[in-house]
Design a protein around this nucleic acid. Structure first.
Lengths: 237, 237
DNA sequence: AGCAGATAGTCAATGGCATTGACTTGATTC
DNA sequence: GAATCAAGTCAATGCCATTGACTATCTGCT
């Protein structure tokens, strides 16, 4: 009944119905691919296939790939942690919460993490988080100027550390294996006299992707913030 | 005289003399290009041109681009900070020194920084730095286990923060401008009642590439290490 | 109803890129 | 001085983003 007869028979090439494509539809497909194949798999060709559309149709909705990826990142963030953001009253707990949310989001999409950390730092959609964190820092006892500086320090720390951890996870297994092998081989040849510390602590140094590291680092950062606040209180009083 | 007569006349295509290519020669050319055009400009074609050789000749010396880049990174690091590494006796100063050396190196080659942070973490060539840092941490008062953990925390922190700062610097100007514009526009529309902290501290929040951030973060990390050592001493005694 | 224009999908082509396999050349060795 | 083998070269492949021309299809207008 519809336009071009042969829609029933043997896999006829159909033109996608008009207006069936949109930013949202495309972003959904992009997410599917990104989750399945990572950023490397996210090509216009793959997108076209996923959408049963011609690859270049996407250009009707996004200027270029960068625009698409950036918006995908925003979508994914919104999904993960723009929801509930209510203070517990404990500034440490509040900062810990935001940090872990970012960290978790980066680990969920490892191959996007680097872009997230580098392009996302000043997105308008983050105002709410910035306000929340600033409030926590004020409650920690920092004055306005220190809170602003510390926010940037803390934000950079959380983002960059999370991104690096994720990026290492996102490396192809083969690459990681090769990298580790190179280390192993030379490690065994280290003279204990020249490298006493390494020799003594060898076990503690090997694991790299350990999620424990982030937790430890986070607590240390929070300690440092607390210390800074104490010093400021001492100065002021 | 030489082989194929016409070497004098109008720009004859010469074959590169045998054995005139080597890993070192290629890496030197790679460095030239990387400094001039960044990692994006470092292609086999560009390399070929720089070397007056056919692009694919390089495959006789490196398995693939990854191998080349990785070795380039190693060369650059060796140049920057494998030289002098003598303790000042002050553990804080020693850790600060290594951190700043890494940071400086990353900023010198911004487009390589991300790879440096992700691929370099366990290179055999870093044993000397690891040993040095571990020694400093022991002198700070940490026991073996804590020193090992803290080293990883500190190393991750330094590398990732430095890499992120560099990566942002390495973004094309156009991209950065666009990103900042988006923020600016929405920023002006924020209701001060809903975002009191942001509104009050606006000035302190705008600058992103500020090198001050790294310094602040570093001192905070060192504070945290000191605190940890103090706690450990208190526990033990 | 029928036409004009615009919008959204499609298609074919381009140019950049890494990588591969077949070739050539020249030095070394017997 | 012929065989050999490594090191340069060349042509081709395949993946990728991006562009400009083409073509349906929907909208509103008369």
């Amino acid at each position: 009944m519809s336009t071009k007869g042969a829609s029933s028979g043997t896999a006829a090439k159909k033109r996608r119905p008009r207006d069936s494509l949109s930013r949202d539809v495309i972003l959904e497909a992009a997410e599917t691919i990104a989750v399945r194949d990572g950023l490397e798999g996210l090509t216009f060709a793959a997108l076209g296939q996923e959408l049963h559309a011609h690859a270049t149709s996407i250009y009707r909705h996004f200027r270029d790939k960068d625009e698409l990826v950036l918006e995908l990142i925003d979508v994914l963030r919104a999904k993960s942690y723009d929801k509930e953001l209510t203070s517990t009253g404990d500034w440490r707990e509040d900062l810990r919460f935001t940090a872990k949310a970012i960290h978790a989001n980066y680990q969920r999409y490892p191959s996007l993490a680097h872009q997230m950390s580098v392009r996302t730092t000043r997105r308008p959609t983050e105002f709410r988080n910035v306000e929340f964190a600033l409030d926590a820092l004020r409650r920690a006892g920092l004055d306005d100027a220190s809170a602003a500086t510390t926010l940037r320090v803390f934000g950079n720390f959380v983002r960059s550390t999370s991104a690096m951890e994720a990026s290492i996870r996102a490396l192809p297994d083969k690459v990681r294996a090769t990298d580790e092998l190179a280390w192993e081989i030379e490690y065994r040849q280290l003279p204990a006299e020249e490298f006493p510390n390494i020799s003594r602590m060898s076990d503690g140094l090997m694991t790299v992707g350990d999620p424990q590291i982030f937790e430890e680092a986070l607590e240390m950062m929070l300690d440092a913030i607390e210390l800074r606040a104490q010093r400021q209180a001492a100065d002021g009083g």
